[in-house]
Amino acid sequence: MDVSSTGIQEPFDLIRLSLSERVFVKLRGDREMTGILHAYDGHMNLILSDVEETIMIVSEGEQQATVNVAKRKMDMLFVRGDGVILVSPPSRT
């Protein structure tokens, strides 16, 4: 049961190895955020600090859709797991 630097047994290992690191989270409702991961559970409920959230606001124009982004920062945030689509750890390169 040794977890080598690349070998992970289950998807949650990827998240566990990202504790105290800055992660990228893609959420339902055209939202994304980065933050430092401090806690998670099996539902993918997350607790992040130093969060920057980006909301994509798509407005359908006559010719083409325009995308506006709204950004905001939050100190400490609980994210409910059912909104999570994807979590990506910082690239280990």
């Binding site: 409702g29 607790i47 600090s49 939050m74 100190d75 400490m76 945030l77 609980f78 909104g83």
Partner: peptide, 10 residues
């Protein structure tokens, strides 16, 4: 969706 928490108490 979210709960903003008091960072000083976490």
């Amino acid at each position: 969706r979210y709960v903003q928490l008091p960072a000083e108490h976490v």
